[in-house]
Computed example of a mutant assay.
Amino acid sequence: MNTPADPIKTQLLEAIVPHVAFDGWSPQAFEAAIADADITPADARAACPRGAVDLAILFHEQGDAAMVAALANSNLDGMRFRDKVAHAVRLRLNVIDDKEVVRRGTTLFALPHLAPEGAKLIWGTADAIWTALGDTSDDVNWYTKRATLSAVYGSIVLFWLGDQSAGHAETDAFIDRRIDNVMQFEQVKAGVRNNKVLGPLTAPLERMMGMIKAPSAASNMDLPGIWRDPK
Rank of each mutant, 00 (worst) to 15 (best):
I96W: 05
A72Q: 14
G78K: 09
T106C: 14
L121A: 12
E117H: 09
A132L: 02
R146G: 03
D64S: 14
A66C: 05
L71D: 00
A47Q: 08
D83A: 13
D163H: 08
V102W: 05
G63N: 10
A46T: 15
R146Y: 04
L161I: 14
V152A: 07
V152H: 00
I96Y: 09
G162F: 04
V53I: 13
R80I: 03
W160H: 01
D97N: 15
N94I: 07
E100K: 14
V85I: 15
D135T: 04
V68C: 03
P116D: 03
V68N: 02
L111Y: 10
L111G: 10
A52V: 05
V95M: 03
G162Q: 04
R90A: 12
A151H: 05
W123I: 05
P116H: 05
K84C: 13
S74R: 11
V89W: 02
Q62P: 01
R50A: 12
A47H: 06
W160Q: 02
Y143S: 06
D97W: 11
A126F: 09
V101T: 12
Q164L: 11
L71W: 02
R146F: 03
F59T: 14
V102G: 07
N94T: 12
D139T: 15
V68W: 01
S150A: 15
A69N: 10
A151M: 13
I156L: 09
A115Y: 11
V89Q: 04
L55W: 00
N75Y: 00
F159C: 01
G124P: 04
A110W: 08
Q164K: 15
R80D: 11
L158Q: 12
T144Y: 10
V89A: 14
G105D: 07
W160E: 00
L93G: 05
L91D: 01
R50Q: 13
V89K: 01
D54W: 02
E61T: 08
L158E: 11
A47V: 10
V140P: 00
Q62H: 07
N73L: 14
A72E: 13
W130D: 07
V140A: 09
K84V: 07
